[in-house]
């Protein structure tokens, strides 16, 4: 999942987390998780003063963003001392699978 400014939102992106009015975390969501964005929905969110949204995958790439390969390398380094420990290795496997899943279809982007 990725947090992006609303101005970078495009039709067909999928909302990853409920969106609330004015970027707060309280009240009734104005747009639910799993909703597919349309141009008119983006206009409506703008009018409701929503500044940022969280979308599925990693559709927007900016300078400094790590590629999936880089993220997996960082993860592997963090677990360097405990990969042979059976319990902690389970946590490593969970994080590795989550990273691959969360990067969605754009996960294949290679480090530049």
């Amino acid at each position: 999942m990725q947090k992006i400014p609303l101005m970078l939102a495009k039709a067909d992106m999928i909302i990853g987390r409920d969106v609330f009015r004015g970027d707060t975390q309280v009240g009734i969501p104005v747009c639910g998780r799993g909703t597919v964005l349309t141009d008119s929905l983006i206009d409506r969110l703008e009018r409701l003063d929503v500044q940022t949204i969280i979308v599925e995958g990693h559709p927007v790439w900016e300078d400094g963003d790590l590629s999936l390969d880089d993220m997996l390398l960082d993860l592997s380094r963090r677990f360097d001392k405990v990969k042979d420990d059976p319990l902690t290795a389970r946590l490593y496997a969970i994080y590795k699978a989550n990273l691959i899943k969360s990067m969605g279809d754009d996960g294949g982007r290679q480090a530049e």
Binding site: R78, F79, V82, T88, L91, Y95
Partner: peptide, 17 residues
Amino acid sequence: IKASGFGNSGDIFVPKI
């Protein structure tokens, strides 16, 4: 949280469960 890489606890490595 150390596994997720969120924040900075001061540790570079994830400790053993």
